[in-house]
């Protein structure tokens, strides 16, 4: 009886159907300060207010040290704000849990488990505890799960011969493919990716971007994607948040630009070659990284203003 309930629960790993406008992630007046080694403190995020709706793909862009990864770690539950609140899936974040899937830049896979074991690890935990694995029902469930995992891995571009390999036997790109499959197998409402593709070569990166986009379109989790790469942010995201480093004495939020990106279904390789994309890319790059180049005033110009802004879209 208990096992049957657990099985039902495990099968309901599927993201619940939500209204499109439902807020999935909310950061309210979030301030984060770090103590410095020589005394004093540094404010990384200052009174940050961000709301991300269910099913959005949000890229966070900005210079090094502007608080992109800090933001992600707070949503994950790995760090907590000094002031303000972080809410995920309607509940405040108090610890790391399965509400968020996580794909870091490195060490994304358990090195002591094969590709298949890595992908099955989460759903097996969701099905039952360690002791429940002696029951035949678990092994039946595992067979079904294995079929699902095989489909997922094939979709992510792996070959069946790779399933029994250990992460150390795979290339960096393959490892990240498995890491995404591992996270998606849990069907989390939120998927957090911290510079997940930054260590990959351009061609692997491009193919992974396409696969991530396809996977997102299929299951529509809410994605928070931290990156340094402007074109990656614009290609993948439906919304881009540009953060800037907080300067002492400033009272406003770190969010420099919060804009909607025109979203199409055309392949990324085609999209990245269009003139509109190049213009948009150049403009956002200037917004995100100009301060370090010239330090001039950061005001969105015509092109970005033409994009539907978050406030505009709601009207």
């Amino acid at each position: 009886m208990v096992l049957r309930a657990m099985e039902r629960r495990a099968k309901q790993r599927v993201m619940p159907v939500r209204a499109a406008a439902e807020t999935e992630i909310a950061l309210r007046d979030v301030t984060v300060r770090y103590k410095l080694a020589g005394g004093g403190s540094k404010t990384v995020l200052h009174r940050l207010n961000v709301e991300i709706r269910a099913g959005e793909f949000v890229a966070v862009l900005g210079e090094t040290g502007c608080g992109k990864s800090t933001l992600l770690r707070m949503v994950l539950g790995q760090e907590f704000p000094n002031e303000g609140a972080v809410v995920v899936d309607g509940k405040p974040v108090r610890r790391i849990d399965a509400r968020c899937g996580y794909v870091p830049q490195k060490y994304a896979l358990f090195p002591d488990r094969s590709v298949m074991q890595n992908v099955l690890y989460g759903p097996e935990n969701a099905f039952c505890g360690w002791m429940g694995r002696a029951r035949p029902r678990f092994w039946r469930f595992r067979r079904e799960l294995r079929a699902e995992a095989t489909q997922m891995l094939l979709r992510m571009g792996l070959k069946s011969g790779d399933f029994s390999k250990y992460p150390g036997q795979l290339s960096g790109g393959m490892q990240q493919r498995v890491a995404i499959a591992q996270a998606l197998m849990m069907r989390p409402p939120v998927l957090l990716m911290d510079e997940a593709f930054s260590a990959l070569d351009p061609s692997t990166r491009a193919s992974l971007q396409q696969q991530l986009k396809d996977a997102w379109q299929e299951t529509k989790p809410t994605v928070l994607f931290v990156t340094h790469n402007t074109s990656e942010a614009l290609l993948l995201a439906t919304r881009v948040l540009v953060l800037r480093p907080h300067a002492e004495g400033e009272t406003e939020s770190n969010v420099l630009v919060d804009m909607q990106v025109p979203h199409t279904n055309e392949p990324l390789s085609v999209r990245r070659r269009t003139r509109e994309f190049e213009q948009l890319h150049e403009h956002v790059k200037q917004l995100a990284f100009r301060e370090s180049d010239g330090g001039t005033e950061l005001v969105p110009t015509g092109l970005v203003q033409e994009m539907p802004r978050r406030g505009d879209a709601a009207e």
Binding site: Q78, A98, Y121, W130
Partner: peptide, 28 residues
């Protein structure tokens, strides 16, 4: 790596799972 522990918790691991099935297995 801390990422491994974080990852394990996002994959519904309990405290003992993390200690014995993630950390111990890796350092064994």
């Amino acid at each position: 790596p801390r990422e491994q522990v974080v990852k394990a918790f996002t994959l519904k691991s309990s405290n003992l799972d993390v200690a014995y099935r993630v950390v111990l297995k890796q350092i064994l």
